[in-house]
Design a protein around this nucleic acid. Structure first.
Lengths: 110, 110
DNA sequence: ATTATAGGACACCGTTTGGTGTCCCGTCAA
DNA sequence: TTGACGGGACACCAAACGGTGTCCTATAAT
């Protein structure tokens, strides 16, 4: 079954703009060390590290140690929960979305 | 242009599970007074009222006074921002989504 | 061998969050 | 006209959030 290892709510994890920027950076760069991420922000290493552990608790990132560096990479899969949640409301702003979501569900069964 | 009256971040507004439940209730019931919502939760009227004002600041609900009641109704449109944000990452968990999102963009131009 | 870099683990701190209770005022019902 | 009800507007509070600085260890570079 789908592993539900999330210690923290995904909705809460993406609520902070800094964390969304981290997600963006990791989506572009595939893999980045902590200091590589920190250099992109105007805050200390400790703060970025805290955001990373929140993302990790939500299952949104993975990390591996290479030498003295810790490399972080994105795991976008948990974002699907947001997608599913949104699908229930998409009819309010787009009539086409409902049908597209149904199509998607069918395709996943194949 | 699209009116951007949001005093508060939509991502932040949907981060709380109570507020997501409020959204759900309003989507089902169309319009509800404060006491009608409060009866669904195990918290006081004041707390629910605070959640409602956060949702209102994010542009997610509207309200109108009728007699001594204040009726609240859902405005799901701002959720589109979340949808747009997700679209950039959907390729990570579903190859078909990218094409569907492109189709959507085309349909909106019609 | 020495020095610089990477980063985990804390303690600490001001602000925000999510709840409470209370007061007060309109409105509706008896 | 006298209650009871609906709800806005505080003040208040503990806990969580989002930062900081410091200490320490492991690794890499000179």
């Amino acid at each position: 079954m789908g592993e539900n290892n999330q210690l923290r709510d995904v909705f809460e994890a993406i609520a902070d703009p800094t964390r969304r920027r981290i997600i963006r950076l990791l989506a572009e760069a595939k893999e980045l060390p902590l200091h590589g991420l920190t250099s992109q922000f105007e805050m200390g290493r400790t703060a970025v590290s805290k955001h990373l552990s929140i993302l990790k608790d939500a299952g949104l990132i993975l990390d591996r140690k290479v030498g003295r560096e810790t490399l972080f990479l994105l795991n976008a899969a948990p974002l699907r929960e947001i997608q599913d949640w949104l699908a229930s409301y998409s009819r309010f702003w787009n009539h086409h979305m409902l049908r597209l979501n149904e199509l998607l569900a069918d395709e996943n069964k194949e």
